[in-house]
Design a protein around this nucleic acid. Structure first.
Lengths: 337, 337
DNA sequence: CCCAAATTTGGGAACGTTCCCAAATGTATT
DNA sequence: AATACATTTGGGAACGTTCCCAAATTTGGG
């Protein structure tokens, strides 16, 4: 099935010169006669010559390939982020291998192995909601392959990270709810292990404190981000003796689900209950009432993370302070609050 | 920066055996003494040995990697499809390299080159709305690398294809509108070059014919799928002397945009104008009124396309009839019709 | 016209693995 | 004990490229 691939040796033989010269001509090495170069280039083109990544990779011990592992694909957040990462990688002459861990720790570990097998020059990763053990990533460090975390980061590893102003965004969202007269503000958060959840919760708490609203433990619940479980927690809120008058949700898909559930009960949004999300997904402007949310620069996050990775690859200094870049967020006020 | 990678030679030296034996132990070759195998496996594990894809690829002239090129990432359709493809690839022990052409012909060509450079064993592709020249894909055929088209296929190339019942789906959608009493049914289609558009339009035309409704050329327009241009064509429809009483849109994002625009004018959906989409995206059930649409088995399409590709890779018979698999569609009736 | 310097080319090792063939070792059969 | 045969191992070529060093060729200045 697979035909013979034309190699530099084919070209060399055909032109009666050595493979070294062909190689030089093809890679644009300066010390090769112009006529020779032209002949080589033309013949290469004619024979549809294609450089063999394997032999090059073997020689250079580098693949000019970056890997990215994201937890999921089904909402718009990560695909958008990947576009940004891919753009930057391409600009720098790198390819990007994409894989998704499906929110499963095991798949993440397996994906990491694949990345290793593909000899990626660096890894971008946003961990799953389950990931508590980071051995598979520390392995990269031991092998000297740089890593950058984005969005969902690992606090215990000292590597560059890109996050957004989760704290500030959450703070602004909750303060906005307070300004709207809401006082019993609930927070439907994600897994406590995820740092984004911790930071958003901290912003929520701080906003309440600033306005002298007592923190009520019953009004904060954590769930595992499985979209079909939103119903359970919304029902819990709605059936509390003192029903909350606003819900700050950990992300937009959760908030959208919440809005749909609340609407079914006949309660008015935002009159009876206001809802706020986080991330400004595409669907958020479509639902009625349109969702108030905290916008984050998604594509930018992909680009920045990739840049930090490239920085590490170029650098050969071992000990430099791994930066944590924090990108701005912005509150988008719509009809749900 | 990059540390020394442990190789089979390191292991061989350490154990005082030959690299051949190590290789055999690692690949599970039967003719190696059990004790030797165990020793090798244990040391490999200890040294965090990782097989080098480059040398293996070089030897075997196969990468056990498939490539997939999709036109875009921003809506849920292609990401979902990729999940299906990735599942099937993984099951078969293949990795998947993903890239998106951003609806640009040039990027598609460039992506194809990257796939070639990565020595993919096969390529899955859905072409951009611009692609009219297929030289970059015929090159794969000449090199003996199998291709499978899905969703947006190329008619002139004889390779396996996976599509859905576009004709039947469109037929059912239009017939449903007619059953609802609609008679002036418009069709907002995509680029005429795309076969899906041709087929859906044929279904539309046939449904009209079956019910003795005259085909009105003014009621069919083609556009390039740039979402910000929907406005122009919807306005065109609304300002016709004989305003249509239904619009069959080429896909869900278009239909969603249409609904939003029509709502702004104060016209009732579906009373004044019914709207139907195609594909059943996530956002379609969220918008109000919820969108009636033709559901297609997206993940299944990804799986099937991958299977067809694997079939070709395994097969060494040169001339076999390239199959075109047609997957079922199903009309989902909601509130917009 | 010759020598030195600059330009251009060729030869061959190296990258890490697989795989074939031959060699070595072990086991059974007569 | 000798032969045949099965099991296990080692040696080395091959995959396609890069890169170093040396060889060949051209160029230029005196």
């Amino acid at each position: 099935m697979k035909k013979h691939q034309t190699t530099i040796i084919d070209i060399a033989k055909e032109l009666g010169i050595s493979k070294s010269t062909v190689s030089r001509a093809l890679t644009g090495h300066p010390s090769v006669h112009e006529q020779t170069r032209d002949k080589v280039l033309q013949l290469a083109n004619e024979l549809e010559y294609q450089r063999n990544m394997f032999s090059i990779g073997l020689m250079k011990r580098a693949s000019r390939t970056l890997g990215i592992i994201v937890p999921e694909f089904s909402r718009s957040f990560f695909p958008q982020l990947i576009i940004g990462a891919q753009e930057r990688a391409k600009e720098a002459g790198y390819n990007l291998i994409i894989s998704q861990s499906d929110e499963s720790y095991e798949t993440e570990v397996s994906n990491a192995r694949v990345m290793l097998a593909h000899q990626v020059d660096g890894l971008l990763i946003s961990i799953t909601r389950e990931t508590n053990n980071f051995d598979h990533l520390k392995l990269f460090q031991r092998k000297g392959i740089p890593i950058v975390f984005f969005n969902r980061v690992c606090d215990e590893m000292i590597v560059p990270k890109v996050i957004v102003e989760d704290y500030e965004g959450a703070f602004a969202a909750v303060e906005h709810l307070i300004a709207r007269g809401k006082r019993k503000i609930a927070h439907l958060s994600g897994p406590e292990s995820l740092s984004i959840c911790k930071r958003r919760k901290a912003g929520y708490t701080a906003a309440l404190a600033k306005h002298n609203i007592a923190f009520d433990e019953d009004l904060v619940v954590h769930y595992d981000l499985a979209i079909n479980k939103v119903k359970f927690y919304i029902n819990y809120f709605l059936n509390l003796k003192e029903r909350p008058d606003a819900i700050f949700c950990i992300n937009d898909p959760t908030a959208i689900e919440a809005i749909q559930l609340i609407k079914k009960t006949g309660l008015a949004i935002p009159g009876d209950i206001a809802v706020i999300g986080f991330s400004n997904d595409f669907a958020s402007s479509i639902i009625e009432p349109a969702l108030t949310t905290v916008e984050q620069p998604i594509k930018e996050m992909g680009r920045t993370a990739t840049q930090l990775l490239l920085d590490q690859i170029d650098r050969d200094v071992a000990n430099w302070k791994a930066p944590t870049v924090v990108l701005k967020t912005q509150l988008i006020v719509r009809d749900s609050s």
